[in-house]
Amino acid sequence: MARDKHPPETLRDHLKAETGIDVRTCYQCGKCSAGCPMAEEMSLRTHEIVRLFGDNRLERLLQDDSIWLCLSCETCSGRCPNACEPAQVIDHLREIAGQQRGALGPRKVRAFHQAFLKQIYAHGRVFELGLVMGYKLRTGAFFSDITVAPGIFTRGKLSLRPHRIEAIAEVRQIFERCGVWDSPPGEDEA
């Protein structure tokens, strides 16, 4: 159709062009929110996120923390009668949010993901001790999990040294070519 020849402008058009998913098929039945394990903690529920997405309300969506609470459990996508893939819609929003500096979600969630990706960039694999330390430094949450920490060490479940893969340059190149970072963010970067 002539309409689809124009460059994608709206959130809906952009998602459809990239992935083929069309949120217009959503008829707001609420089945996604009904099965969402985080619904009781979210202020914007799954079906509302899809609705606002379809209405191109990016600002409204990024002002809210709800998209960062999604666990990607895919229960919603599995049961949606119209195959709208709400879990993909939310991932798409998270990617857009990451590109816009001003809208980056709750601090702890953001900090975790940054710390995790930094591990991959640094070593090629996640060195868990490094992950935890990086996370704690970003969030200042030094004393939570303190009760379980000794247990992990005594059970030999955390190595004290990271294992760096040989082809680490290849992994770093992936990050750079994806345009995620040119170099990893420093510890103090929020």
Binding site: R94, H113, F116, V171, R177
Partner: peptide, 24 residues
């Protein structure tokens, strides 16, 4: 010399990264 699949953190950050890391 396998590398991390990216887990959750990659796919909530960028779709391309979340596919490229496992693709390696």
């Amino acid at each position: 010399d396998w590398s991390c699949c990216g887990a959750t953190s990659a796919h909530v950050t960028q779709e391309l990264l979340s596919v490229a890391l496992p693709a390696r």
